[in-house]
């Protein structure tokens, strides 16, 4: 491939949208993904993303903005899990498993009952970054602002709650509030990311970059910059590869993430005696 091809690709408006949208989504999933990974909450991310399908479907069914309905369901799921974890004798995994499978099933049923125009369900299951709209990008920037603002205000509290919630409590950190805030941010980030990789693969954006960087980071200060770099780099490579090779964009991005992860894992993830 020569430079002229790249220039031609960059002239395409849908590619411009995909690059901008992919960049923002890669950044915010990486930022929140650091905390999701270090809190060992990969399954929560997966659960919230699947459950949000019910919101999208409901939005189309009652003709109310699917994005906002998805946000509502995702936040409901995030808050519900956080609330029940403290109050139920069931394990977190069981609670999440029950919640997300029910809501995912509900989403599929509602999608099929929706009369008139509705997009293909596969758009939401597997994502389609090449069909991202300016409205999607607008929402992504809004969520990015929210995430950056939250990090600016609560970075120390997020980190301390994640590392050692008891010690955080003893330093007057509002641990319960921080737990809710991290989960709600995770839910909102997941919803804006669905257009890029779909509900089935979105947790890959949250988990893979942070997991790889965890293997090589010399300190926590490196975690967020390196994870964001990994995520943006992988998303752009995956985006261009999917366009050039005519492959599904979401799956291609996740495969690129997976290849980078495997290289890091083979180099750093296996202890050598």
């Amino acid at each position: 491939m020569d430079n002229i091809d790249i220039v031609e690709i960059l002239k395409l408006e849908f590619m411009q949208r995909a690059i901008i949208g992919g960049f923002v989504v890669a950044m915010i999933t990486a930022m929140i993904g650091v905390f999701v990974t270090l809190r060992k909450e990969a399954f929560i991310g997966d659960g919230i993303s699947h459950a949000s399908l019910a919101g999208i479907a409901l939005g189309f069914f009652i003709s109310v903005a699917p994005f906002w309905m998805a946000v509502a369901v995702a936040v409901f799921m995030a808050v519900g899990i956080t609330f029940l974890q403290k109050r139920s004798t069931l394990s977190s995994d069981s609670i999440i498993g029950v919640f997300f499978t029910l809501l995912f099933a509900l989403g599929i049923v509602i999608f099929n009952l929706t009369p008139g125009y509705r997009p293909e369900i596969s758009t939401y299951l597997f994502g389609s970054i090449l069909s991202i709209t300016w409205a999607d990008i607008f929402y992504a920037f809004g969520v990015a602002f929210l995430v950056i603002l939250s990090f600016a205000l609560f970075y120390r509290q997020f980190l301390y709650t994640t590392l050692d919630s008891e010690a955080a409590y003893l330093r007057n950190v509002k641990v319960r509030l921080m737990n809710y805030l991290i989960r709600i941010l995770t839910a909102i980030v997941i919803v804006v990311s669905i257009k890029v990789v779909g509900v089935i693969l979105v947790s890959a954006l949250l988990i893979i970059p942070a997991s790889a960087v965890k293997l090589i980071a010399k300190n926590f200060g490196q975690m967020i910059p390196l994870t964001v770099t990994f995520s943006i780099f992988g998303t752009m490579i995956g985006l261009f590869m999917s366009y050039i090779l005519n492959l599904p964009s979401g799956a291609t991005i996740v495969l690129v993430f997976g290849i980078i992860f495997m290289v890091v894992f083979l180099l750093k993830g296996i202890p050598r005696d």
Binding site: L38, L159, Y160, L163, R171, K214, N219, F220, G221, M223
Partner: peptide, 18 residues
């Protein structure tokens, strides 16, 4: 025993949180 020893943080960073 309560701490995750695989958390990617240095002693200095951990103590700075205080």
């Amino acid at each position: 025993v309560g701490l995750d020893r695989e958390f990617p943080i240095t002693v200095e960073e951990m103590i700075n949180l205080e």
